[in-house]
Design a protein around this nucleic acid. Sequence first.
DNA 1: TGTTAGCACTCTACCTCGATGAGTGCTAAC
DNA 2: GTTAGCACTCATCGAGGTAGAGTGCTAACA
Lengths: 343, 343
Amino acid sequence: MQMDERKRKILRAIVQDYIATAEPIGSRTIARKFDLGVSSATIRNEMADLEELGFIEQPYTSAGRIPSDAGYRYFVDCLMDPQELNAEEMEIIERESSKRINELQEVIAHTGKLLSELTNLTSLVLGPHKGKSTFGKMHFLPYQPGQVIMVIVKENGAVENHILDVGENLSAEELQHVAEVFNQKMRGYSISQVKRSMLHEIYSELSRQRLLIDNAMDMLRAILDGKEEDERIHLGGTLNMLNQPEFKDLAKVKTLFKVFEDNEPLKKLLTPRQEGLNVTIGGENTLKEFRDCSLISATYKVNGLTIGAVGVLGPTRMDYAKVIAIVDFMTRSMTEILTRHRR
Amino acid sequence: MQMDERKRKILRAIVQDYIATAEPIGSRTIARKFDLGVSSATIRNEMADLEELGFIEQPYTSAGRIPSDAGYRYFVDCLMDPQELNAEEMEIIERESSKRINELQEVIAHTGKLLSELTNLTSLVLGPHKGKSTFGKMHFLPYQPGQVIMVIVKENGAVENHILDVGENLSAEELQHVAEVFNQKMRGYSISQVKRSMLHEIYSELSRQRLLIDNAMDMLRAILDGKEEDERIHLGGTLNMLNQPEFKDLAKVKTLFKVFEDNEPLKKLLTPRQEGLNVTIGGENTLKEFRDCSLISATYKVNGLTIGAVGVLGPTRMDYAKVIAIVDFMTRSMTEILTRHRR
DNA sequence: TGTTAGCACTCTACCTCGATGAGTGCTAAC
DNA sequence: GTTAGCACTCATCGAGGTAGAGTGCTAACA
């Protein structure tokens, strides 16, 4: 059996109607709502074929049909009209994007919020992976008596500061000297590459400031090698899930939200298998808790480098055309903002 | 009519049983479960009195009784046995607290997590209010060509860094000079106190670095006068609410979670009317969405100064004795950690 | 006067049962 | 190949009926 034009039309009608109403749809209703020029009986026959092909299924005998995962997949790949964002959505995004936003963190938070508002679904944003980064430069600044501010510039340009105990009071010159030695020895190395010999060299050059050096090394280890706290998933609009009729069951909500609480699986989910847009439908999902959900995700870049991803999670029954358009537009716009801003 | 010892015993029994089971309790059950030495009929009479006094109520005719808000209040104020934490809980807190935690933010996040885990309820933690802070000191450090790192030390000791455009390349000496002028003129002033005349002075002393100065002032304004983003409510264990039988209704969950999404009301709720421990029961709550909830909150201090608060939110039917013990212990422990660590 | 046993009554939760209606598959006619 | 008709299926919904827990009241008892 093959898909022909009429089957395609009927499948499209089923998917579109089910997306809109969340109710199983029967042959008679299709015949009434969509003007296909054939009777319900004919549609009935075609629907039997579509079921055999695996594109639609019955929740129970003598209920209407609903699209299967394969049906949605076929719809997304072959039937869907690519959608433009409407004027209002465009305007919202334009307006929001024109706000002055300084930090990457803010861009991320902002994007998530916007995404969930526009789609009425849950948004996921994966920040840039700090990962194991390498040492760029360090400065020491005076702070309280017995403490200094250590400013670390990583080689990727990120800047962090931390407060260190130094025991005794060190002069500005001494501090600068220590920083210079660090900078000379360590530039471009990740913390795991710092050999014992390197440390010995630093120690021997700086005999006096041992406590400062030890504390600084501890901190560097923590910063460069530590948990990648920035690479957290930012969730937005998780509540929107509650508005979906498929989650009127509390048990389902609970299992879903439980997954939301744990970042690791979400991180994995969003870490893109490939650049650009990805659509994962229902059971295609690796997380069994999401087997009733679909994920539309896309990567964003800074300076041509893919550094993170955003996604929208919703029930399998979602408005794919619209969500895909929004996610696509948002990642493009993010890439543009980040590239413009950070040169 | 007056409360006598027997009425108190019966009320305590009702509250304790309802806290444990979430089911209305009848006279016969009380007589069976609690050995009060009187028959169910007597208890029945006493319960009628307790109802008249407003301490208990019937959900519907010929159901058992449940405590009213006033009943819980009486229980908390007069009937409850103050509870010690058990060994296991003590150990958990000890163990968790001994972990090396550097930043205030981490302490806050950590506390929230622990609180919600120990109570199986939702935890709220209010961080320190940054508020409008005053200028302490500033440094400039070289960064990329045409950009510098501005490090701000506020007078309360908080350190932040930001990246500024400076247009042209400025030498280290120039940067230092600019910073010195700022430091001299502005130390101890809040941004709103920076008068036009002060700015003129700075300008006249530093004729060349106008762009840097403008950008720095913009940034200072944003940092010192800006939104108090740190004073965010940190929520933990919101999911725990779903396990409470009183929230098996999805509509209730939705309104509750909607409040969780908005920080402002929560902030107000937690901003303490008085130092130390606070118990707000059911309808005593100002937020109508929380009229079925109780909040146990307490303040914590750094160096004798109250800087924030933590709270536990649960259904009105909660284990007050235990939750109060936990919240009390946690804020004490927090105060100790913060004071120890920050000297 | 306080306590208790007994009893009629009330009300919810739960179950069953039948009606309803949407939808299907099959068959036969067009 | 298409359509009309028909018997059949199954979820949903409301009605009715029952069980059980609990109450208030009354009368007897110490």
